[in-house]
Structures are given as structure tokens and as C-alpha cells.
Amino acid sequence: MATVAATFDARSDTASKFEANPATRDSAWVKYLVIGVGLTYFTIFLLLPLIAVFVEAFRKGAGTYFAALVEPDALSAIRLTILAAAISVPLNLVFGVSAAWAIAKFQFPGKNFLITLIDLPFSVSPVVAGLIYVLVFGLQGWFGPWLNEHDIKVIFAVPGIVLATIFVTFPFIARELIPLMQAQGRDEEEAAISLGASGLQTFWRVTIPNVKWALLYGVILCNARAMGEFGAVSVVSGHIRGETNTMPLHVEILYNEYQFAAAFAVASLLALLALVTLVLKTYVEWRSHRPVAGEQVS
């Protein structure tokens, strides 16, 4: 359901325009009331939790903090989290590009329905997302007995974690690319082909450069979600320490064992990841809408 986060949007700075215009300017007390109430709400619900993560992480000192991060189970959780993201992001990237190419550059019946289906994982509860793989690959599931016979573990093992991660991050890149590529149309590709470019040349030299910022944006969001996913992964993981724990699951285990400082230490890494994501996202938004140097003539 992160449809909005995923919207690739121009946000030019219009506030000063509104403030300069007498018809759209609000009186000072309205302005400060709105800002005051808005910022209070923002602080209580967003800022304080973010600060709390770091404060709690260092409550027992830097020693405990770093000890919690280099502990073997923590390191193994970090490795698994990176692995899950490293598999699911590229797969969803290939899917996103391929789906956007088919949908934006060609006409075929049922296109809007396909777009809706691609959005589906956003509206499915993460817990249900985990459950469906248990039903397919679990011991009681469709392929469970067969997998068991051949000694292949999917559920309560790394493959299950990767699958659940792919599911919850499935639409991120596709839904960045589809509207943008649809808006861009086929003209530039047709021009390239008419100038003698091959299909692949057209794709690499015309299509990809035109969508690179949207692509990067999708990858950033997809990666953040892949590394942070909790509910879906929790269902299929089995919580085996040092083996099937991702960072968010490791946070949960530490927390439930009342090792609060350690839990917040690992959580602070994830919070840092979130901040980096926001910085990159803001940068990409800024880059993709920055006018090319020089003045507009037309």
C-alpha cells in the first residue's frame, strides 16, 4: 500500500508564491497555528520515535552498543538481511522493467487489470504474505512432502525468507516505471528504430536513460522495504538464531529477552538505513526534476 511513497512526483517550491499572493496568503496567526499544530503532531509521532531509537541504543554506553553489533548472531542477521535484499531487489528490478516495457510500449487487452494485479502485494497484510508460502512450501503445504523427501528446506529457512521478501517488495520498481514510461509514450523509441537502432540499442540508449531516476528511486524504496520487512519474514523464518534471523527479527528476539540496549543498537542500524534511504530519495527527487542548465527558450 505504499502507493504514495512510490509516487514519482515533481515538488517544486511553491510556498513562497502562495505567500506572496494576497489572495492565497493566510493571516499570520493562522500560519503559526497551522505550523505549530502540524509540527507538534510531527514531533510526537515521527521525530520522538526516531530520536528514541538512538537514545535507547546508547543508554548503556558505547561499549554495550558496539558489542551488540559485533556479536555473532547480530552479524549473521546482518548478512542474511543483505542477502535477502541482494536477491529480491535485482529480481524485482528485472520484473519491473519488463512489466513496464510491456505495459507502456504496447497495446493489449486486460492491461489495466494487469496493473491492478501488480499492485496487489501492497494491499496484502505482510502476515498473510508469509502465510501463503507456508501453505505452498510448508510441511502441510502443496510441495511440503516432496520437498521434505528431497531434503530441501524452504520454510523456516533462507529460501522462504527470500520469497517472502520478494513478495512484499514486488510492486515497488514496476509502479515507479509504469506511469512514467506510459507518459513518455513510444515516440522516442520509434524515432530511434527509424534511425536504424536495434531493439537492444533503443532500450539501452533511449529507454533506460529516460527512466534512470525513477528506476533508482524504485530500487531505493524496494531495498529499504526488503531490509526492513518484519511480518512476512517472521512467519516463514522459524526464528533460528544465527541461521534464519534477519535484522528486524533479531531486534524482536533481543527485545523479548529484555536486552533493550542491544535491541535498540541493532534497531539503530535499521534507523540509519531509513535515514540514508530518505536522503537518497530526496536527492533523486531533486535530480530528476532539476532543469537542465541554461534558460528555457520556448
Binding site: 502562495f18 521525530l47 524504496l221 524482536e252 535499521l270 530518505l278 530519495k281
Partner: peptide
């Protein structure tokens, strides 16, 4: 509609719940 100091930062941080893993939000 309004200009005020720190507006850009607030604007960027609005998306925090999208980026912050839910478990981290929960314990915080």
C-alpha cells in the same frame, strides 16, 4: 503554503514511516 525554517527537512522526514522498519517503529 508556508515558508518556515526546517521545512525541507520536515518534508523529507514525513516519509520516515515508509522507510523505517516496522519492528523498529514498534519498539521505539
Amino acid at each position: 503554503r508556508y515558508t518556515f525554517p526546517g521545512r525541507k527537512i520536515v518534508d523529507a522526514l514525513i516519509d520516515l514511516p515508509f522507510a523505517l522498519p516496522t519492528a523498529v517503529a514498534g519498539i521505539a
